[in-house]
Design a protein around this nucleic acid. Structure first.
Lengths: 203, 203
DNA sequence: CTTTTAATATATCGATCGTTCTATTATGTA
DNA sequence: TACATAATAGAACGATCGATATATTAAAAG
């Protein structure tokens, strides 16, 4: 019916995502985005309204593909809640060590990014990080109910600690992305629950 | 000898600090800074060279007054290393609940701020956060050597966990600065070491 | 073909960016 | 009282910002 798009939304958003991820919202200019996507600013505005709208779609797709949409339900369906928790942190570790993507987490960067304070943006970030919290809380309570955790463990506190470990990991991935430190952070977060993540498979 | 300054460096940097802290480096304009300080941009440039130079001085003073310069040596001098650790987190909690200052931590915001990636800036942030790491590591090892920690505790992992708790606290202070959650985060971070922070004193 | 439709590029908008030029001001000193 | 010094303000710089008006392009539908 009409002229075809030279770049589909998914690929476009992935390219824009890397720029926002590396530079932050305010430091990313429309020219950076046109250079990364190969599209003109007019084309971007026609499809996403404005810079904030493009960023919102980037965040939405980032959250969908990065964690929540597929990974969390799959892990939550595991019969052993301990495996759900350790599997989540294994996945996070793999993400942190992936070389084809900027370090850290776009959602958490955005929490601390005073340049991206549009209410819709903030709400979206909180909602998506909230899904992670709910997951960790549910698995912790499930494990406790099954008697799979040490008696001294209080699920609300333990779940908060696990979520805190997620936050710490994502900051550390930018501060000092040494795999040894990231694994040590996970060890510190999981060992109070009697859990651990397998050692690195290969150098 | 010459015309006196209408605003000393400390007061000037404190005012600029609040703007950078709230908005991030890239989203803060020179006009924001002239409005906050009451000085002209020419005066700011005469004193700090450029925007990055001003930001560097803001960070330096933030680190000096916020944590390292006075607090860490004082805590490290306590006879009981457990008191040094719990005292540090009590101070952090008080900072997080202070109403006269933006939420979160300017240093950690800057770690994740792609708009403030000047090498000097990054080096300064890492150095100052490194001082916190060194403090936590030293107190953990001192406590372990004195037999004040549970036998299962491995100091390098435990110290990494404590530093991770600091990172998590500072993110949470922006994500959801509920005192209950901040205290729960501290409880999760300290309880594996058999430590805790006193309950809230007054509503 | 022609028409319709939407995605695109070109060119440019006024606003704002960080920065600097020039001149003025207020002090201590001679 | 004049001089030297440095901090300041006012005005403006070119560059870049996010955003847009206009025109062109490529396909499907008739």
């Amino acid at each position: 019916m009409s002229r075809p798009r030279v770049l589909n939304d998914d690929e476009l958003l992935d390219r824009a995502r890397d720029i926002f991820w590396r530079q932050g919202y305010a430091a990313t200019s429309l020219r950076d985005l046109t250079a990364a996507t190969g599209l003109s600013s007019a084309a971007l505005y026609n499809r996403f309204g404005d810079k904030a709208g493009l960023f919102r779609e980037v965040l939405r797709r980032y959250a969908d593909t990065g964690l929540s949409a597929e990974r969390l339900p799959r892990l939550a369906a595991l019969p052993d809640p301990r495996a759900a928790i350790t599997g989540f942190f294994e996945d996070l570790l793999a993400l942190s060590e992936a070389a084809d993507t900027p370090s850290g987490c776009l959602l958490i960067n955005t929490v601390l990014d005073g340049g991206a304070e549009a209410p819709e943006t903030r709400a979206l970030v909180r909602e998506r990080l909230g899904e992670v919290e709910v997951f960790l809380r549910a698995q912790t309570e499930r494990a406790k109910a099954k008697g799979l955790l040490p008696a001294r463990i209080d699920p609300p506190v333990a779940a908060e600690g696990l979520f805190g470990t997620v936050l710490a990991l994502r900051v550390m991935a930018r501060l000092d992305p040494d795999p040894v430190r990231l694994r040590r952070l996970i060890a510190a977060g999981l060992s109070p629950l009697g859990l651990s993540v397998p050692a690195a498979t290969s150098p």
